Computed example of a mutant assay.
Amino acid sequence: MPTTLSEKAKKVKSSSTLAITAKAKALRAQGEDVVSFGAGEPDFPTPENIRAAAHKAIDAGMTRYTPASGTVELKEAICKKFKEFNGLDYQTNQIVVSNGGKHSLTNVFEAILNPGDEVIIPAPFWLSYPEIVRLAGGEPVILTCGKEIGYKMTAEALKGKITPKTKALVLNTPNNPTGAIYTKDELKAIGDLAVAYDFYIVSDEMYENLFYAEGKHVSIGSLSPEIYEKTITVSGVSKSYAMTGWRIGYTGSSKEIASLMGSIQSHQTSNPCSISQAAAVEALNGGQETVAEMNAAFNERRQYIHGRVNSLPMISAVEPQGAFYLFVDCSEVLGKKYKGKEIKDAADIAAILIEDYKVAVVPCADFGFADHLRLSYAISKEEIAKGLDRMEEFLKTL
Score class of each variant (00 low, 15 high):
K10H: 06
S15H: 07
L18Q: 11
I20C: 08
A26F: 08
A26P: 08
A29D: 10
T46I: 13
I50L: 12
R51D: 12
A52V: 11
H55P: 13
I58G: 13
D59F: 14
T71Q: 05
L74A: 07
C79G: 11
F85L: 08
F85H: 08
N99K: 15
K102V: 12
K102P: 08
H103C: 03
V119Q: 05
I120M: 03
P122D: 08
W126K: 05
Y129T: 03
P140G: 06
P140D: 05
C145Q: 00
T154K: 02
A157L: 02
L158R: 07
K161R: 10
T166R: 08
L187H: 13
Y197T: 13
Y200F: 14
I201K: 01
M206V: 12
N209M: 13
L210P: 06
Y228E: 08
S238H: 10
I257D: 00
M261Y: 00
T269Q: 13
S274L: 15
S274D: 13
S276Y: 12
A278H: 10
E282S: 14
L284E: 01
T290Y: 15
A292I: 09
A292T: 09
F298K: 07
I305D: 03
I305K: 04
M314D: 03
S316C: 13
A317G: 00
F324W: 09
Y325L: 09
F327T: 01
D329E: 10
C330P: 06
E342P: 02
A350V: 07
A351T: 14
A360Q: 01
H372R: 01
H372E: 01
L375R: 04
S376Y: 09
Y377V: 02
A378G: 11
A385K: 15
D389K: 10
R390M: 15
L398Y: 09
